[in-house]
Simulated assay, not measured.
Amino acid sequence: MMRVLALLALAGFILLPLAQAILLSFTATLGGEGVARGTFGLMNYTAVLATPELRAAMLNSAIYVFLNVSLCIAVALPAAYALARYSFMGDRHFLLAILVFRVTPPVVLSLPIFILFAELGLVNSPVGIALVHCLFNLPVAIWILESFIRAVPRELDETAFIDGHTGPAFFFRHLMPAIAPGIGVAAFFCFIFSWVEVVFARILTVTGGKPITMAIQAMFTFQTNIGMVMAMTCLSLLPGLAMIWFVRNHIARGFTLRA
Score class of each variant (00 low, 15 high):
M1D: 08
M2E: 09
V4H: 12
V4E: 14
L5H: 04
A6K: 04
L7V: 07
A11H: 02
F13W: 09
I14G: 00
I14P: 06
L15R: 02
L16I: 02
I22D: 00
L23W: 10
L23M: 07
L23G: 09
L24P: 01
T29K: 07
T39S: 15
L42H: 07
M43N: 11
V48D: 04
E53R: 14
L54P: 00
R55G: 12
M58H: 04
M58L: 14
N60Y: 07
V65W: 03
S70E: 00
C72M: 05
L77Q: 01
A82S: 06
R92Q: 08
H93F: 02
I98C: 00
V100E: 01
P105S: 03
P105W: 11
P112Q: 12
I115W: 14
A118R: 14
L120Q: 12
G121Q: 05
V123L: 15
S125D: 13
V127N: 11
A130Q: 06
L138M: 12
W143K: 11
I144R: 02
E146V: 07
S147P: 04
I149N: 03
R154M: 14
E158C: 13
G164K: 05
G167Q: 13
M176L: 13
V185H: 02
C190D: 06
C190I: 08
F193H: 13
F193Y: 09
A201W: 02
A201M: 03
M214W: 01
A218R: 11
M219I: 06
T221W: 02
T224Y: 06
M232Y: 00
P239W: 01
F246L: 11
F246C: 00
I251H: 06
G254L: 01
A259P: 02
